[in-house]
Amino acid sequence: MTETLLEVRDIVVDYPVKGFRKPPFRALGGVSLEVGPGECVGLVGESGSGKTTLGRAVLGLAPVTSGSITYRGREISRLRHRERRALAADLQVVFQDPYTSLNPSLTIEQILTEPLIARKTDKQLARRRVRELLDAVHLPSDAGNRLPREFSGGQRQRVAIARALALDPKLIVCDEPVSALDLSTQARVLDLFKEIQARTGVAYLFVSHDLDVVRYLSHRVAVMYRGEIVEWGPASQVTVRPEHPYTQRLFLAAPVADPAKQEQRRAERHRLLALQREQDEQMEINA
């Protein structure tokens, strides 16, 4: 196996609950995962499964209670502000909502030069970099002078991707980057992700609730359920022949865009649910 880029080990994230002596809410209960260089690891799960929290913990935006996150062998889960800022060149993010992830009062150029300013890049150089970035995400080069509200959701998401690329990162955490987009826009943005990965060799930790999206993009997939990873392996296995009962349910729950196939899948799903219910009852009786 080649060098691991990011390694998450037994990570636990607790959020304090308001109220006197109330036990904290455990968003992540001991999760382990790894991302290799140039790899895309999909993280799939339903709302409240902790997938977004894991992404935020890697970025240092969620409090880590215990466990370790190492980036190229270096512990990054408990960095100071200054050290975390130094890591910005390697670890970047694309958020879900392209409407709130761009400051509405800044122009696209101001948004894109932001990470460069933090590195004290020369102004001329920064401006040239902005043009390169806009080109890389297939936006017109005059887009820099315009405000985010002049762009559609898909275009905004391209701007957010360009911002993430500005410092040539090694890993981008993508938090549901296409779920706010229309179907046809979604496909084009996903292709852009693939294209950028092929060109720059950046790795993705790709968080999504959509098994199809994850299958399309990921090399390996982790399935999260109630703060834990229940299945982990190559995408061709996890997203096509899932083994864990929850992943199986998830797999069969997504409707296919084909009336005949969907009817089959529905029947399969009902069979699976009946079978799992039976097994649960068996286990209860045995216990």
């Binding site: 196996m1 080649t2 037994d10 001991g30 999760v31 382990s32 995962l33 790894e34 290799g36 140039g38 790899e39 895309c40 179907l183 046809s184 979604q186 496909a187 084009r188 996903l190 199809d212 999206v213 299958r215 399309y216 993009l217 990921s218 090399h219 390996r220 834990e228 990873i229 229940v230 299945e231 982990w232 392996g233 190559p234 995408a235 061709s236 997203t239 096509v240 083994e243 864990h244 997504a254 296919v256 865009a257």
Partner: peptide, 28 residues
């Protein structure tokens, strides 16, 4: 219809990375 992903092939493992598939306690 062309934008629909389900029929797309799974991407499979990245060459050079052998999936361990044994990480974590919760993995079945």
């Amino acid at each position: 219809f062309e934008a629909i992903l389900p029929d797309a092939e799974a991407r499979g493992a990245l060459p050079g990375i052998t999936s361990s598939g044994t990480l974590g306690e919760g993995v079945t």
